[in-house]
């Protein structure tokens, strides 16, 4: 029987941000999104504020399918739908009518950066999460030393606890540079490049190392960035695992 895979779920206290009560063209934007999305009651995650009344929210629709909503008190919202192959932007005018739509490809999915036939895509993520196992996705980069120097220690600790581990490279760094740095540290590991839209939209590339956790066919909605000692990680993962049951 094929496993049912849930990417992001709303876990009790972890329920994600709600959209603001007021922003320009709120009703029209929500109606538009509901008309396009097959999933109702999206779990919005608030991103940073860019300035004053401007806010950005993201929500996952399905694996490899995301939506981003930019809201403002004074300006009409912008709505973008993403998948690995393309994104489409929709802009409303000040009368809250659909003004334009444009399409393009996110930079990491352009051929010169990642190769979706070799690199770790959302399809791979779906397969991994759907394996039913419990495991960690570990993102590393030579841009942040600890993410590589501490990899072996973290790997050993996680494997001892019975977790599978998938290491993925920063896609913005030349793999040759990463390999050279690993060699200089006498490290014997090599991961695939991160090319998953889902991990990208969950801000997996903001800091290294960043860990994502999956268990029971679900991906935990929060990431863990930075270095932690083994006991701390172990306790946290046990808590996350219990929440995913």
């Amino acid at each position: 029987m094929k496993n049912i895979v849930i990417l992001i779920l709303c876990i009790s206290s972890h329920c994600l941000a709600q959209l603001p009560e007021s922003f320009l063209c709120r009703k029209e934007a929500i109606n538009f999104i509901n008309g396009k999305s097959t999933v109702k009651n999206l779990n919005w995650v608030k991103q940073r504020n860019d300035h004053n009344s401007f806010q950005v929210f993201r929500a996952q629709i399905h694996f490899n399918e995301w939506i981003e909503l930019k809201t403002d008190l004074k300006f009409a919202p912008a709505i973008s739908f993403f998948n690995e192959k393309k994104y489409t932007d929709y802009k409303l005018n000040s009368n809250c009518e659909l003004l334009t739509s444009t399409s393009g490809v996110l930079d990491i999915f352009q051929n010169e950066l990642v190769d979706t036939s070799k690199d770790f895509t959302s399809k791979d993520l779906q397969k991994l999460v759907g394996s039913g196992k419990s495991g960690i996705i570990y993102l590393y980069s030579p841009k942040m030393t600890y993410s590589m120097t501490e990899f072996s220690r973290i790997k050993k600790g996680l494997m001892k606890s019975g977790y599978a581990l998938t290491a993925l490279m920063d896609p913005y760094v030349d793999p040759q540079v990463t390999a050279t740095f690993a060699k200089s540290l006498d490290l014997q590991f090599k991961g695939r490049r991160m090319a998953s839209l889902d991990l990208y939209m969950m801000n997996g590339l903001d800091h290294y190392p960043t860990l994502f956790f999956y268990s029971n066919n679900k991906l935990y909605p929060h990431k863990l960035s930075g270095i932690h000692d083994e006991k701390n990680i172990k306790n946290l993962l046990a808590q996350w695992k219990a929440e995913l049951k």
């Binding site: 490809v105 930079d107 990491i108 913005y172 590339l205 903001d206």
Partner: peptide, 18 residues
Amino acid sequence: MGNSVMDSEEVGKKINVS
């Protein structure tokens, strides 16, 4: 430092800006 998805100068293209 944060990653932002923003419009590129090139029409129809988005870039991830660190």
